[in-house]
Amino acid sequence: MGDQAEGLTNNSSETNIESSGNQDELIMAQQRQIEKEISETIPLVGELEAITTLSSEYSTDEVYLSKIKDLVSKYSHIRRTRPDGNCFFRAFSYATLERLLGDKEEFIKFYKLAENSKSILVELGFQQFTVEDFYDTYMEVLKRLADIDNVEAAKKELHTIFNEQGYSDYMVVYLRLLTSAQLQKEQDFYSCFIEGNRTVADFCHQEVEPMYKDSDHIHIMAACSALNTGVRVSYMDRGTGTTVTQHDLPEGCIPTVHLLYRPTHYDILYV
């Protein structure tokens, strides 16, 4: 309990720290200040930008510049997302829906998959009352998008929705819940990827369901299966080589969503 406060209070446990105030709240206040600065400068989901704009971030870094060159040969545009720990879920959700808007038949299939998802969550033991809140919003968004015939207008609406904090975060929460459900449904398989003595359910409660928790490979694998969507991730870091490393998830899929990973952050890529 109060993990964050523990380190601060251990040394002073002999003295009366009642007077030193509420350490938890001080830490949280500082964290909120940092988050506020990020949220004021970077939108939840940005506009489409030419892929070449990446170079300006690394003007003197040879390793990155050569990898960007490789990326430019593969992709034309990038759409940045806010680095708030939800970037994978937000980027993946946005890119999936954006693609579906251009494919009516696939969209209807996805809509049906989403429609049936609530009962799967409830069967797995998620509290119906709270799941319903996120589910209703998720379906409301899908419906709003389905009702727009013009593809460009629908994409514009998608962009607006994903930049409204309330809606955008609910889309993230629901995908987190679906991902958690997928992990728990196939826990025999996923348990091999979890470090330490945690059960898959524990891992989900601590690392998947809470907002702002970063995503790893395991989150992506489960999210892909949950939405029945293939993704190609291009990894760009300071590691050796002059090209970006690409992974398709699930392995051997035909990727319909493309993401750029730079240490601790995901953005959306466009071919």
């Binding site: 109060g2 993990d3 406060a5 509290q127 819940l177 409660h205 809470p210």
Partner: peptide, 12 residues
């Protein structure tokens, strides 16, 4: 000082 009100909070 309760974990679920801090770092273990979940939207559920």
């Amino acid at each position: 000082c309760l974990d679920i009100l801090q770092n273990r909070w979940s939207p559920t």
